[in-house]
Design a protein around this nucleic acid. Sequence first.
DNA 1: GGATTATATTCCCAATACGGAATATGTCAA
DNA 2: TTGACATATTCCGTATTGGGAATATAATCC
Lengths: 125, 125
Amino acid sequence: MSRTASASNVFTAIAEPRRRQIIDLLSRGRGLAVGTIVVTLGLPQPAVSKHLGVLREVGLVSVSKQGQHRVYELNVDQLRPVYDWVKSFEQHWERQLDRIKVRAERRAQNLASTAERSTRKKGTS
Amino acid sequence: MSRTASASNVFTAIAEPRRRQIIDLLSRGRGLAVGTIVVTLGLPQPAVSKHLGVLREVGLVSVSKQGQHRVYELNVDQLRPVYDWVKSFEQHWERQLDRIKVRAERRAQNLASTAERSTRKKGTS
DNA sequence: GGATTATATTCCCAATACGGAATATGTCAA
DNA sequence: TTGACATATTCCGTATTGGGAATATAATCC
């Protein structure tokens, strides 16, 4: 299994767009057979099986046999490391938003006082 | 530049552990020279430059020349797609937490009633 | 058993990825 | 200019990736 060798971590697993698609698909509709995924995403079956293999390997999905199909289910908790990592930057956006807000307010102030001044001028002229 | 070719998206860029290290490092200490990164992470300089190249290519960092060094700065907003994607699974954790909570409460109830029963038994015995 | 369906695996291939060593480029200082 | 730094780029080698086609495995139905 060549493609799975170094895909030993979740970050690598989710780097693939198709795999994120599969994850998205699995995140709604609890438990999907491979065939469903194949049809829904319009990918060749071997490709889907391989991607599912990678996801399985890092624990992002788990399988259960159900008759002649395998039903795949998302183990959403395995995404936690990604969530935690990226969440640690949340504050930066907030800070940035704050800066933008402050700047906007300052601009508004300036506009207001400019308007006031020009109004006064108009009024006095 | 071989490694940068298909690393055209942020998800691929952050798949590399070293690159995440670099991002982490840059996230504190606004603006770092390459040499600082090299020393701090203990990686060979060419490796650092290459990784920075990838990060630059996807817009995750930006450079400014400052004398004879280049100062790299994190563009944290470029991590937004990752954040947004993974955040969409937040509710699943909450749901899971809810389930756990409910189960815990049920357990607590059972324990309570068991305790009550045994107390009553004790009391009546 | 034999055919059919569902899925996994294998093989082959072109395209990268990443590391290391060497080298190029750019900047400052004397 | 020469030399010392700081950083980027190139070259090379090996490993890995993902796709496609073919095939293997497994379960189901007749």
